[in-house]
């Protein structure tokens, strides 16, 4: 008798344990998958300066909102449950209100856990995100105008954004000033995106992993290697040779056909103006 009731209660106990364990396991699986999903930072959400890389940030940020409180410009917000990023974590949307890049970085100082890295003391070294001129079809400078607003508002002007000059092929007689972002200096503050005069900004700030490409690790840039070595790495340097269709001649040297360059005078009389930039 005793043994049976013992058996039964042991059975019941094991059953109860299995039931609870399964329930909690299922719940944990759901929660784990949700946590995994929440790691993907949506493209418009920019973390405060010094934020650790997103997976690390999720383990470091305790969602206390101290950074939100100590931001003098009130740009930061804690994500609400319905937002696309991990609930309770701080972010800002550059198009709404960008980072003012305070020199003393109060948000980092306020962070009790180091989810905002206390090693970052120079705001110009911040990497909140990376600006990218995503739409060359609507950017006014690409249309040949002199808007320049993103360039002008950039706190790291002439380093993070430069205006690269190029010939305007459409008008044939103007220069285009193309805003060009340099990732080495861009802090991701978002001033350019905020200031873009278009209905929808042509220049946008993204989390770095979305905005930045990467060369294959084995890639070497020949000109940089040459500079590092102080001389050509291919020795002796091979003289460049031109391969022109038969009958054509290259004015500056012999082609592969071996014929000597025709003297300039022997060339057909082309109006001098058509020589273009050689003039």
């Amino acid at each position: 008798m005793e043994a049976t009731s013992n058996n039964q209660s042991r059975r019941q106990f094991l059953l109860d344990v299995a039931k609870t364990a399964c329930g909690i396991g299922m719940f944990g699986l759901g929660l784990g998958l949700y946590a995994r999903q929440a790691r993907a930072l949506p493209p418009t959400a920019i973390r405060p300066p010094g934020a650790l890389a997103e997976p690390d940030f999720q383990g470091a940020c305790i969602r206390c909102g101290m950074c939100v409180r100590d931001c003098p410009y009130n740009i930061l917000e804690l994500a609400k449950p319905e937002d696309d990023l991990a609930t309770g974590t701080p972010y800002f949307v550059a198009r709404d209100i960008p980072c003012e890049m305070c020199e003393d970085i109060p948000c980092i100082k306020a962070c009790p856990t180091g989810a905002l890295d206390h090693q970052l003391t120079d705001i110009n070294k911040a990497k909140m995100g990376l600006a990218a001129l995503v739409d060359q079809e609507t950017c006014l400078n690409f249309l040949g105008l002199r808007c320049d607003v993103c360039y002008r508002v950039c706190p790291v002007i002439d380093k993070a954004i430069t205006l690269e000059r190029t010939h305007n092929v459409r008008t044939t007689r103007h220069t285009m000033f193309l805003p060009t972002v340099h990732s080495e200096h861009c802090t991701g503050c978002g001033k350019c995106e905020k200031a873009c005069v278009l209905e929808v900004a042509a220049i946008k700030v993204f989390p770095i992993n979305l905005a930045k490409g990467a060369l294959g690790e084995h890639y070497r840039l020949g000109w940089e290697e040459k500079q590092k070595a102080g001389a050509s790495l291919v020795a002796p340097e091979i003289e460049h040779q031109y391969n022109l269709p038969e009958g054509y001649k290259y004015e500056q040297g012999p082609g592969l056909s071996g014929e000597a360059a025709a003297p300039a005078a022997a060339q057909p009389a082309i109006p001098k103006a058509l020589h273009g930039d050689q003039l």
């Binding site: 944990g28 929660l31 784990g32 949700y34 946590a35 995994r36 929440a38 790691r39 997976p55 690390d56 999720q58 383990g59 940020c61 305790i62 969602r63 991990a86 609930t87 309770g88």
Partner: peptide, 12 residues
């Protein structure tokens, strides 16, 4: 789960 996922899971 916090240890396994690297996320503070309960705060989700």
């Amino acid at each position: 789960l916090s240890a396994a996922t690297g996320t503070i899971v309960w705060e989700m």
